[in-house]
Design a protein around this nucleic acid. Structure first.
Lengths: 245, 245
DNA sequence: CGGGTCGTTGACCGTGATCAAGTAACGTGG
DNA sequence: CCACGTTACTTGATCACGGTCAACGACCCG
């Protein structure tokens, strides 16, 4: 992998082999790269859905505000993620995209998706599958928000963050940097920052996790999985049914 | 529309005009029709994802159970909906599909999706858009589950059911049959059946809704929308960017 | 220094869960 | 026709999980 290789190609070739047609299609999407400081609202809710993004560096999240200021974080984005599929059939984005730390994004225009649909069924199937896998992870989140206790919700969030770390780094997925504040964590799992603090302390004193210097380590991984019946949606991604070209 | 016309064609031609290629692709998917009694688990979680379904008659829902028996209803399916996209990249279904009443389904095999991807980019774009619109509705549900009060959650659920009624019947969408029990409603919005009962009574005595003979009528529609900042995801579905063929 | 954000801890409170009892509607088989 | 079981809904009493409000310390950066 060369230094200036497309981030999209790097990411997508994890899943399938890309032929020349697919590669050139992807390259045609990427002519830009943008940097943002932390805590920037990069694409506000209601704004145009004509640009999608590939995350090159840093964490971001998508959130919605209620009328009275309550906030719900809907999805946390990591390097390699594609941001923007849920909104493509909408006139305005449903969520606001915000950087959790300093980030680098590769934006690409939605208008060119139709060329992919037309010229590469196999790449189309991949994009489709990535979009619906996100959907399954939203379903898992719904289960957590609707029916889990505070302790279970946080265990669930940490496990799902750990599993997304594992995609790019197999060996250190149980210890990762956590750039989200406890208020942001609370907005993700439907708790207050105060109760997040209490519950994380409780998890730590029970030996489930360790926090240190902005990192979180999952100490009793299997016990945590058992508590919340965790399914890793990144492992076992079925590409066998894709068209050949 | 003839009586024995494909339910998929009926549904999809709502959104775009289907050419001969697209029509024959759709017809090739549909060679079956199945009936189920109410309260049947039709496709259990973990089972094969090789069949998808179009709902021809009746309400169903997809749910997940936690280890201790708590249950979360993830999505309520109505006539015309396509069921199964979220699971296509998974080895086993993430949710159990259950009939809320007597239903009729048109199952079709996943294996034939690749022919659509290969032969009709325009139809592919439509399926993609339908899948991601469901994703946006899950995002709305996450907002409700994470940050709304019981009263708001129920108002939200009723509004979203009303808006899905509006797709097929513009004029009676504010009064619709409600085949879900209060326990099932509770499983959908993360409340107990007891508190659903109390809250619906409260909404009724405040004049927001009326219940009568298994029907629910939304009396103060605009007030309800204001309470929860409701967005109708069925209106304004953008197909303008689709490939031509 | 000063000002900001962030995490922690304590006291108190309220929403919604839990447990329980009671009613109504329904279908079943005698 | 009634006796019976089941399921759904309601209502009351009590409880606890997590919210709210407030104060304080640690840390960072200007």
């Amino acid at each position: 992998m060369t230094e200036n290789q497309s981030c999209l190609i790097t990411r997508l070739s994890h899943y399938i082999e890309l032929d020349d047609v697919a590669e050139s299609l992807i390259l045609s999407l990427e002519e830009e790269e943008e940097e943002y400081n932390k805590h920037c609202d990069i694409r506000p809710a209601g704004s145009s859905t004509k640009r999608l993004f590939v995350v090159k560096k840093g964490w971001l999240y998508s959130y919605i505000d209620l009328l009275d200021g309550r906030r719900q974080v809907v999805k946390i984005h990591h390097p390699g993620d594609i941001i923007g599929f849920p909104d493509i059939a909408l006139e305005g984005a449903a969520t606001t995209l915000r950087s959790a730390e300093d980030v680098c994004l590769c934006p690409f225009p939605q208008s060119k998706l139709d060329r992919i649909f037309t010229q590469s069924p196999r790449l189309t199937a991949l994009l489709f599958s990535l979009a619906v896998r996100d959907q399954v992870m939203l379903i898992d989140m719904i289960k957590a928000l609707g029916r889990m206790s505070a302790r279970e919700k946080l265990a669930y969030l940490l496990l799902s963050l750990g599993s997304s770390m594992r995609v790019t780094n197999k060996y250190y997925s149980n210890k990762f940097r956590m750039p989200l504040s406890q208020s942001e964590i609370g907005d993700a799992v439907g708790l207050t920052n105060v109760y997040v603090s209490r519950t994380l302390n409780s998890l730590e004193s029970d030996g489930y996790i360790r926090r240190e210097g902005g990192f979180i380590e999952l100490l009793r991984f299997d016990d945590l999985c058992g508590i919340v019946d965790f399914n890793d949606r990144y492992s076992r991604f079925d590409t066998s049914w894709f068209p050949q070209h």
